[in-house]
């Protein structure tokens, strides 16, 4: 194959030779000036020399592909399994609990799971508690976290940057119970001292503690998102006469917005899911908060505090699992909404 006259680059030469692959069409074109380019020669030449991959290489690739696929699928399976097992514990009370009805569960503020005379399972106050603490935490953490991310990635020098990143990682590594301590002692005293509130463990305290816990996540993920914006965008923007600040809000924030939103969502996730710190910092009182100085209780803290006391298999026990399902659904909705928002942006 390799020795064939296909190697000759001159089409006339091929036509004249007239052997092998020289087609009738080409021969018919014969003596006239223009000739179609030889169509089979580049491939014909390549085929003989193209390196063959060994069977091992191909088998190995298939194995790796399988492993990757399995881990991808199993991630989904795990989530479904968690949901399934939590739901299974909760199902009996949902479909026939003695004192349980779905609407009061969702929309009543009366949570008296151990009352002797009249058991009531209303989680509205807990849901509102979770949302209000999270919202307050995000109001504090998002501007601060994103601002810090922008500063670390765009404005500060390399030395300061390294230092800040180490500090931020350190902050992220503090266990939540330590944050709870800080809330219970330092923060609560500060709040009483500066605001004159009667108790220091309240919505504000929990919000601040959660904000401090989510800021490191928002900063490090946000910084990664900004770092992923190609430098060519920065140069193009600056070459057009943008100042550094104009560059940030006209180019970098739009370019990195998906990553930044992911950073915020991870922060929200941390705040919604956090248990120990809010249990200690918010005062743990079932209460619809009217202001930031009211004590609240969150869904997570409630489960953590009561599951140990509830007899396994009792209605109370199952309702707590149902609370877990509720929490799961709420985070799912939050993520879904965020996802839709991103899609909406993309379509534009």
């Amino acid at each position: 194959m390799t020795g064939r006259e296909g190697q000759s680059e001159h089409p006339n030469h091929r036509a004249a030779g007239g052997e092998g692959v020289a087609s009738g069409r080409e021969a018919a074109g014969g003596g006239a000036g223009w000739k179609p380019a030889p169509q089979d020669s580049p491939r014909g030449q390549g085929e003989g020399k193209r390196p063959r991959r060994s069977g091992w290489a191909r088998a190995g690739e298939r194995v790796i592909e399988g492993v990757i696929r399995t881990s991808g699928v199993s991630a989904v399976l795990f989530v479904l399994a968690i949901f399934f097992f939590v739901f299974r514990e909760a199902a009996p009370v949902l479909f026939g609990g003695e004192h349980f009805k779905l609407l009061p569960f969702l929309f009543s503020v009366e949570w008296y799971p151990t009352s002797a005379s009249n058991v009531r399972y209303g989680t509205l106050a807990l849901t509102v508690g979770t949302f209000s603490v999270t919202a307050l935490a995000m109001v504090l953490a998002v501007p601060f976290g994103l601002g810090a991310a922008v500063f670390v990635s765009e404005f500060c020098g390399p030395r300061l940057k390294e230092t800040l990143k180490v500090v931020i990682e350190l902050l992220a590594a503090i266990p939540s119970v330590v944050w709870g301590f800080i809330g219970l002692t330092v923060m609560s005293r500060l709040i009483v001292h500066f605001t004159g509130a009667p108790v220091g463990v309240n919505l504000l305290n929990g919000g601040i503690i959660l904000a401090l816990m989510s800021v490191p996540i928002i900063v490090s993920i946000g910084e990664d998102a900004l770092k992923a914006v190609p430098d060519s965008y920065r140069e193009a923007g600056l070459a057009l006469g943008a100042t550094r600040w104009q560059l940030v809000y006209r180019v970098l924030l739009p370019a990195a917005r998906n990553g930044l939103l992911a950073a915020v969502l991870l922060g929200v996730g941390r705040a919604v899911g956090e248990t120990m710190a809010v249990l200690m910092a918010t005062g743990h009182a079932v209460n619809l908060p009217l202001g930031v100085f009211d004590s609240v209780r969150t869904l997570t803290a409630n489960v953590a505090a009561e599951l140990g006391e509830a007899p396994a298999g009792s209605d109370h026990y199952r309702v707590l699992f149902l609370t877990g399902v509720l929490l799961f659904s709420l985070t799912f909705v939050v993520n879904l909404v965020a996802d839709l928002v991103i899609r909406g942006w993309r379509r534009k």
Partner: peptide, 25 residues
């Protein structure tokens, strides 16, 4: 004004790309 050999479209709409510099100014 500078035109680079490899085009770098800013990740904005066509309109915003062109309006970028005037807005900055």
């Amino acid at each position: 004004g500078m035109v680079a050999p490899l085009p770098v479209g800013l990740p904005l709409s066509i309109y915003d790309n062109v309006a970028f510099a005037p807005r900055c100014a």
